[in-house]
Computed example of a mutant assay.
Amino acid sequence: MFAAYAARISPEDPLSALEVGELAAPETPADWVTVEVRASALNHHDLWSLRGVGLGEDALPMVLGCDAAGVYDGRRVLVHSVIGEGEDETLDPRRTLLSEKWPGTLADTVRVPARNVIDLPDSISFTDAACLPTAWLTAYRMLTTRGRLPKGGSVLVQGAGGGVATAAVVLAHALGARVYATSRSAEKRAQIEALGAVALESGARLPERVDVVVETVGKATLDHSIKCTAPGGRIVVSGATSGHLATVDLRRVFFLQQEILGSTMGTRDELAALLDLVATAGIRPVIDSVRPFVEVRGAFEALASGEVFGKLVLEH
């Protein structure tokens, strides 16, 4: 099969570890099903894999990718990339994502447990659907299950521009929230404002304290996130792109009874609910660019540059 895969581990130069070409189909459990991939999307998880985070030498070569939509048994389907057991598979201590233990989605086909395929409504294209299983699902869980966004509530999204952040802005707006978003880039602030957010410079004072903060930046913004959170509000963390060792003023946290919550990906049921919201609300993912799959290396280079706004999608 034709695939983009990690051929080696390179912490300092991750793109040097990327290979694109024919690869023997890896073995998977016999009762898993095969999805013919029609569209896939990149995530920063793919770059971390090339650096060796969550991926060991013993698993190489490893097909990369967590996001895909395609065809299974004549049906249009979306792939859920969390492999785990239990009512909430994200809490399974043995849970893993595609491209960590099992081959990922950046290939002609991907194999997954049958419960990990979800029927895709005709109203949603393969291209749009491929954006949902990682960044959009992460944002949805942060706002709903973990953030418990109240009706008519308010949200701050830190570091707007990345996949999770842009998804959080669109989803929070669709859920009826007042949305604020920060970025150091004037260009990205203009882009995020067009999505329905009040755009502010990083660290700026908000007009109000918010119910939920979507925090993916980490060390550089966590203190600002805590200061912007209302009494009883929640800071939901799903990433730390600026560093993971942050200083927290615990006095503010306990005095204002704030919550700092971790969040990772989402469940199959949450992905189905997200898919329903996208279909019924008529919202669509923010896409930076769509490229043919043969140009996957260029897509990785764009992702690594940090200049992307929204998702990078590949058509197969």
Rank of each mutant, 00 (worst) to 15 (best):
S183C: 10
F2V: 12
Q158A: 11
R184M: 04
G233Y: 12
D122G: 13
D249L: 03
L23R: 03
V253E: 11
R94W: 05
C131N: 07
T109N: 03
A59R: 05
V179C: 06
D46C: 07
A172E: 10
V290C: 05
S10W: 01
E89G: 06
V217H: 08
R141S: 13
R178A: 13
V37Q: 00
P26N: 06
V20T: 15
F309S: 04
D128I: 09
V286H: 03
E295T: 14
V112S: 01
I287N: 06
A114C: 02
I226P: 03
D223I: 12
V63M: 04
G233Q: 10
L149F: 12
C131F: 09
E193Y: 11
F126A: 12
A199N: 07
L277H: 11
A174R: 01
T96Q: 03
L98E: 06
V112Q: 00
V157C: 06
H173L: 03
L50T: 07
L171M: 03
K151P: 14
G162M: 03
A3G: 11
A41H: 03
V253Q: 10
G86H: 08
V236E: 10
D13H: 11
G74V: 14
G104M: 04
G310V: 08
L23W: 06
V71A: 10
L149A: 13
R146V: 15
A69F: 10
L137G: 14
S238Q: 04
R146E: 14
R76W: 11
V214L: 08
Q191L: 12
V155Y: 09
E87W: 01
D58M: 01
G298V: 11
G298I: 08
R51G: 13
L143F: 07
A168C: 14
A165I: 13
E85L: 09
K188E: 05
L271N: 02
T216H: 09
V248H: 08
D92W: 00
H173R: 11
D223M: 02
Y72R: 01
E208P: 00
A30C: 05
L245M: 08
R38H: 15
L156R: 03
V294C: 06
A186T: 15
E295Y: 02
P103R: 00
G84L: 01
V294R: 00
H316I: 14
S40I: 10
P150Q: 04
T145N: 02
G86N: 08
E215W: 01
I287T: 13
T280F: 05
E301P: 10
G232K: 00
V248M: 07
R111I: 12
V253L: 05
V214P: 00
R284D: 09
A240H: 08
L271W: 00
D122Y: 04
T166D: 04
R141T: 15
A130S: 13
A139Y: 07
A165H: 10
A220H: 09
A17S: 07
V112R: 00
G233W: 06
M62L: 09
V37I: 11
R291E: 15
A25N: 04
R38M: 11
G152V: 13
A279L: 00
